[in-house]
Design a protein around this nucleic acid. Sequence first.
DNA 1: ACAAAAGTGTTCACTGTACACCCATGA
DNA 2: TCATGGGTGTACAGTGAACACTTTTGT
Lengths: 235, 235
Amino acid sequence: MKIDHYKSHDHLLVALDCIIFGFDRNELKLLLIKRDFEPEKGNWSLMGGFLRKDESLNESAERILNNLTGLRNIYLEQLHAYGEIDRDPVERTISVAYYALIDVHTHDKELVEQHSASWFPINEIPDLIFDHQEMVKAALKRLRYKASHQPVGFELLPEKFTLPELQKLYEGIYDTRLDKRNFRRRILSMDVLIKTDEKQKKYSKKGAFLYKFDQDKYTEKVTNGDSLVFKPLRS
Amino acid sequence: MKIDHYKSHDHLLVALDCIIFGFDRNELKLLLIKRDFEPEKGNWSLMGGFLRKDESLNESAERILNNLTGLRNIYLEQLHAYGEIDRDPVERTISVAYYALIDVHTHDKELVEQHSASWFPINEIPDLIFDHQEMVKAALKRLRYKASHQPVGFELLPEKFTLPELQKLYEGIYDTRLDKRNFRRRILSMDVLIKTDEKQKKYSKKGAFLYKFDQDKYTEKVTNGDSLVFKPLRS
DNA sequence: ACAAAAGTGTTCACTGTACACCCATGA
DNA sequence: TCATGGGTGTACAGTGAACACTTTTGT
């Protein structure tokens, strides 16, 4: 065969769709946009776009996410490639889904408004176009797995956070209730949080101490082969 | 925007590559082919092909796997989409990698020979073209995760197998040694194996009882919310 | 009779989980 | 002073892991 044999094969559109998770008011949420073109104009959708020849998949996902949020360097991971023949009625398109974890307070609210985007609690997601519902379901499953083995939850919180906030986050991700004492003991025993001497008084009169995640210490522990389990405890 | 706005976007080649696992002579192995066209002609490669417009990603992976092994209805799961710009030097191509688990004794040996394919122990994989080495690494990681939570190991064995064989399989997958008594107790306590009254005398004079995996019972347990852990024990 | 693999139970340490009360503060 | 959320310790049960000898049978 010749080197140009590739030419004889089909060329397709490659789309990307982003499942954007945030955590606000003790709830896990998704950022969805109202689609402004046909087909399915006016319906809710994941933020998406098409892959360009001059960018990698990851770069494309970063670009698309940046278009909506104005953010860079955020936690972004490939989820799955969706390739049913008729998944997009206009033209044969495969879509590579990515999920992102962002701190809801940092994104660019103007951009979000321009896209008619809004945040939906994970349990109140409206009907979505194409196979986006399936993507969301898979993303949630992946987030649950990921958060139980790696410290990704912190991506959804501000740099400084309280232990009650962190607990609420895990409760939101796993849709469950956790025991306060067990949760605190477990998280603190990992020894990857730095306690600051500041107190957060937003939610209580007494105030709760703010902590920071210690990325260096975590990296060191992983390098040493320690396996930290962030999986939450029951009840 | 008009409905035909899609036309203005880039169209790309979409390839598929298959990481094919087998288990033979107490070793976990991969089926690799010797590439018979440029570029990289003569070098070792994963079995691959291009996605056609008239087939879904899964169908395409099944077709490609069938081309090499003659097998159908094989355990096949999408791994990851690879999309670096220069991953294929001929033309911009994204590749969706799938991994397959097959019983090495059932595949069509003629087809495999036609493709100059052969089985390599997982620890003796030769240099591979493009980013195929990265794919293999990710596939092994995924297999390890998957096999610890779901009964996929059985896909690599014949329908009937002995407990020592099953133990060797897990030892191969995790590159570790397991305690015989702990392993047997754990696997049998899941209550998803059917003991036959046949003995396999291939490896010993005494002979070992053959077992079958009870898919129905397993499905029932999962439906009941039981979470079986196939994760192996240490030492 | 012996070599080689199959098969079998018990003990201990650790970790997950249940559970209730005091503390600090702003209103 | 009181209402609200923050913070703390202990006891028990279940599970993971270590560990050695007997059985079967072909040669």
